[in-house]
Simulated assay, not measured.
Amino acid sequence: MTRFRPCIDLHGGRVKQIVGGTLTQDGVSLRTNFVSDRGAAWYADLYRRDGLSGGHVIKLGPGNDHAAREALAAWPGGLQVGGGMTPENAEEWISAGASHVIVTSCLFDAEGTLRMDRLKDLVSAVGAERLVLDLSCRRVQGGWAVAMNRWQTLTELRVTAETLDVLAEHCAEFLIHAADVEGLCSGIDRELVEMLGNWRRLPMTYAGGISRIQDIDEIDALSGGTMDATVGSALDLFGGGLIRYGDLVARQRGKSGMETV
């Protein structure tokens, strides 16, 4: 069954929900859906109490290390962490309590070319079993390209079954945000989900556009239950009015009575 993987997105040291494609370097075009008055540790403890393992803490830019460490301390071994991960600091975050480190940008050079040597350095640092590759992507002609640098820079790497086959030898999981629909609550990128759902070698989590429980059911059907899902801006936990957090917890526990707001 497709599991709900919770998230803690950090920006400026606070838990936020941001429209993914607007997170530029200068911040001028930033669109924020939600800013929480609760700390990252509160969310981590909530997920711990509800048994929602495998979620991710994402540091969106500088100024988030302290909040990320608080979340990891609230649930040691229960959360993954991403944002600024490198071969030099990856082990430090594992020691801080992360179950896995999530990486994207450090795998590419400035021109967006995949550097397999950097990937191998990360494997040497923490082991493939602790590594999640974030292949968050944007639509391009004929498919999808991995986007780095807060999803602003397209790389040369296309998201295909062949790409997944090659990279699967060097990681434990994949995390894939559909950046074009992230934060919009407008529905999933069904074509991307269908393509990813046919590839079933490693655990994979999809994020982007989920706005109703039925979207998760569709991901479940398209992937044969092998792909998990993350919900952000649509969730009442983050100020949304489309999906109740309690319904997702109940779904995970196999309970009935789920409703959308």
Rank of each mutant, 00 (worst) to 15 (best):
F108I: 07
H56K: 07
E92G: 08
G78K: 10
G77I: 11
G55M: 02
R69P: 01
D65I: 02
D117R: 12
R48E: 13
L46Q: 11
A41M: 06
A67T: 01
P76C: 06
A68I: 03
N64D: 02
D117S: 14
V126I: 13
S105A: 11
L72N: 09
E70R: 13
S136H: 01
L79D: 05
K120H: 10
D45Y: 05
L72Y: 03
E70L: 15
L72H: 07
G61C: 12
A67M: 01
A71G: 02
P76K: 12
A41F: 04
I58C: 02
L72M: 08
W75K: 01
S99Q: 13
P76D: 06
V132D: 06
E88H: 14
S95K: 15
S105H: 13
V101M: 07
R118S: 04
A98L: 04
L46N: 05
S99I: 06
V123S: 10
A73N: 12
D134E: 09
R115G: 02
G112T: 11
G82E: 10
L60F: 01
R69L: 15
L46V: 13
S136V: 00
L60I: 09
G55P: 05
E88C: 07
A128I: 07
I94R: 01
A67K: 00
L72V: 11
G39R: 14
V81H: 04
R48D: 09
G63P: 06
P87H: 05
G127Y: 02
A44E: 10
E91W: 09
A44I: 10
E129Q: 14
E91Q: 13
S105R: 10
D121Q: 15
E129N: 15
A96P: 11
M85R: 07
N64W: 00
G83N: 06
A125Q: 07
A44N: 11
R118P: 04
R48H: 10
V101E: 08
A90H: 00
N89P: 04
H100Q: 14
G127E: 03
G78T: 13
D109Y: 14
G54Y: 10
G63S: 07
G54F: 10
E111F: 03
G63C: 07
I102T: 14
D45N: 12
L60N: 09
E70Q: 15
W75S: 00
A90Q: 00
P62M: 11
P76S: 11
D109P: 06
G54V: 12
N64M: 03
H66M: 10
G83A: 08
L79A: 08
L79E: 07
C106Y: 13
V126C: 05
P87N: 04
A128S: 15
A125I: 06
M116T: 10
N64P: 05
L72R: 05
R115D: 13
Y47I: 09
G55C: 07
L79H: 06
D109G: 09
S124D: 15
L60V: 08
G54L: 11
L131R: 09
R115I: 02
R118C: 03
A71E: 00
A74V: 06
E129W: 04
D117H: 07
G83F: 01
G61E: 06
G51R: 14
D121M: 09
K59M: 15
F108H: 08
G55F: 05
R115T: 03
L135T: 08
R115N: 08
I58R: 03
G39E: 14
T104W: 04
G39V: 05
A125K: 04
D65A: 15
A98P: 09
G61F: 09
I94L: 15
